[in-house]
């Protein structure tokens, strides 16, 4: 009899554990985004005369930490970064010939209270009178924030895709067809 009981026990255990396993994994709700210090993202898209530029930069690269600012020094650092990033022209340069003007207040957010990694997220809206002259986009923030080392850039403009990696030495993405 004994071996049979063991057998039954084994089966029950296996069965319950497999249910538990399935229950744990069938609804994946905890996704963890990849995060790499020193590497941010830049997206540019245009339609008609509208241009949207989005940036996502790890907070560490901008202010040097990724938690709720504690000291007054850290607080002023975050405030200064926010103030800088909120002015489209101080962070981005577009060709003058394209006659682009910000037509909406830039949106800048930093999820510094998050438990895991934190990013600065920026969205800039432009209206360009002469979009055909939009031949490049330069990120000036590299000079302001020395922690920023790399931006993976992708752009959809002039009916074509453009991809590139921007660095402090090459802060410009060419958008010539």
């Amino acid at each position: 009899m004994k071996p049979r009981v063991n057998h039954l026990l084994m089966c029950t255990l296996l069965f319950t554990s497999s249910i538990m396993y399935a229950g744990k994994h069938s609804h994946p709700k905890k996704h963890h985004k990849a995060h790499e210090h020193g590497v941010g993202k830049l997206n540019l898209v245009s339609e008609g005369d509208q241009v949207i530029v989005e940036l996502e930069v790890p907070a560490h690269d901008i202010v040097g930490f990724e938690y709720q600012p504690k000291t007054p020094e850290q607080q002023s650092k975050v405030a200064a970064a926010m103030a800088y990033l909120k002015v489209a022209k101080s962070n981005l340069e577009l060709p003058a010939a394209a006659q682009c003007h910000p037509h909406k207040e830039p949106k800048v957010e930093a999820n510094l209270s998050a438990k895991a990694h934190a990013e600065f997220q920026m969205t800039y809206h432009f209206t360009c009178k002469n979009i055909s002259q939009l031949t490049f986009l330069k990120v000036l923030g590299f000079k302001q924030f020395t922690g920023m080392k790399k931006l993976k850039a992708q752009a959809l403009v002039h009916e074509a895709p453009f991809v590139g990696t921007l660095t402090p030495d090459t802060p410009q993405l060419g958008l010539r067809k």
Partner: peptide, 20 residues
Amino acid sequence: KSRISIFEVQREINNYEEEA
């Protein structure tokens, strides 16, 4: 409908809660 929303929709799909 409009290309301008491409990165927004992409982000929404990437962050879709119920499924990876």
